[in-house]
Simulated scan of single mutants.
Amino acid sequence: MSTFGLVLHRGRAGELARSTVEWLRARDHEVRVLDEDAAVIGDPDLGVASDELCVGTDLVLSLGGDGTMLRAVDLAAPEDVPVLGVNLGQLGYLTEVEPSGVRVALKRFLAGSYTLEERMRLEAHVVDAEGERPSTALNEVVVEKSEMGHTVRLEVALDGRPFTSYVADGLILATPTGSTAYAFSVRGPIVDPRHRAVLMAPVAAHMLFDRSIVLRPDCEVVVRVGGDRAAGVSVDGRSVARLLPGASVRCRASDRPARLVTFGERDFHAVLREKFHLGPR
């Protein structure tokens, strides 16, 4: 018997989640869902707290789009639990299978016919008057302006040495996986997600030097809010803090990568062609 955790997109995953739970339980597997997702399935007895979902779990099944995958990875990675993504969204860049292939994918997982692809994550520490608060990201950490119509001054240090001050709308610190997310929209480089690197990309920089930089994964990046305007910090799209001038974010590669279930080697170039409609013109 195996134990499965399900993370759901509540607006799209209801029917598929219910049929998947029935299929797993009919084969004597244990199924858990988050308390807030249990109502979608209609079985509150399956609900557990977020810190219990992945303890002793064999697989986390993400039913949704890329946002649901980010939430699933955030829960699973601290326990080294692999995640299998089922695409119920539009882009589905992080997901592995379509809804019609869920049962085949689960059979292959149970038979051991799969591979694990590790993806680097970022560990970010917000440091301000309230102390130090950690977060982790699969895609990116963003420090950005909090006032419309104004820029923010962000003082960057690399490995403890001052680098430069950006006057910009914000600064993106992204993983290779996140190179096709927000960093892509500011013309950052596309990096194979199996690489390990930190991408630093300014957003609408009001200065001559506005290029993205690819840093080694163990480089420690500290972003301090300078000037007299506050900034906001988001992690994989979730707002986590408001930084007053003088506060900072310290960021580097996490020791715990995401572990994604794949079936056969993932062809990154083919994914790019499909998702971005590339090919002969």
Score class of each variant (00 low, 15 high):
Ala174Glu: 10
Ser135Leu: 04
Val86Tyr: 09
Thr136Val: 04
Ala168His: 09
Val104Cys: 06
Lys145Phe: 03
Ala157Pro: 07
Arg103Met: 12
Glu144Trp: 03
Ser185Lys: 13
Gly92Ile: 05
Thr68Val: 01
Met69Gly: 05
Tyr182Met: 06
Val86Ser: 10
Ala124Ile: 07
Arg161Phe: 00
Asp192Cys: 10
Val191Thr: 13
Ala181Val: 08
Arg103Lys: 10
Glu118Tyr: 03
Thr68Gln: 07
Asn87Pro: 07
Asp169Asn: 10
Ser179Ile: 01
Ser146Val: 02
Lys107Arg: 12
Arg153His: 14
Ala168Gln: 06
Val81Gly: 00
Arg71Met: 06
Leu110Asn: 13
Ser165Leu: 03
Ala168Asp: 02
Val156Ser: 02
Glu117Leu: 09
Pro82Ile: 02
Tyr166Arg: 05
Tyr166Lys: 11
Asp192Val: 13
Arg187Ala: 10
Met69Cys: 02
Val73Pro: 01
Asp169Tyr: 03
Leu106Pro: 00
Leu94Ser: 05
Gly85Gln: 04
Leu94Val: 05
Phe109Glu: 14
Ser165Trp: 10
Tyr182Asn: 02
Arg103Gly: 05
Leu88His: 08
Tyr93His: 14
Val191Glu: 12
Phe109Val: 15
Val81Pro: 00
Arg187Thr: 13
Ala129Met: 14
Ala76Trp: 01
Gly131Asp: 10
Arg103Trp: 04
Gly178Ile: 09
Ala174Leu: 11
Ala111Thr: 14
Asp80Val: 06
Thr180Gln: 07
Ala124Met: 09
Ala181Cys: 09
Ile172Leu: 05
Pro82His: 06
Gly89Val: 13
Ala124Trp: 00
Val86Cys: 11
Asp80Arg: 15
Lys107Asp: 14
Leu110Gln: 14
Arg108Lys: 13
Ile190Pro: 00
Pro78Leu: 07
Phe184His: 15
Val167Ser: 14
Arg153Phe: 08
Leu171Ile: 14
Ala111Tyr: 14
Leu154Thr: 03
Glu79Cys: 04
Val141His: 05
Gly160Met: 12
Val167Leu: 12
Leu116Cys: 07
Met69Thr: 04
Gly67Lys: 04
Leu91Glu: 12
Ser135Glu: 15
Ser179Trp: 02
Glu123His: 11
Leu122Glu: 09
Gly178Gln: 10
Thr180His: 07
Gln90Pro: 07
Leu75Cys: 10
Gly112Gln: 09
Ala76Phe: 04
Gly188Cys: 08
Lys145Pro: 03
Pro162Val: 08
Arg119Ala: 01
Phe109Met: 14
Glu98Gly: 11
Leu138Ser: 00
Leu158Cys: 12
Pro78Gly: 04
Glu155Ser: 13
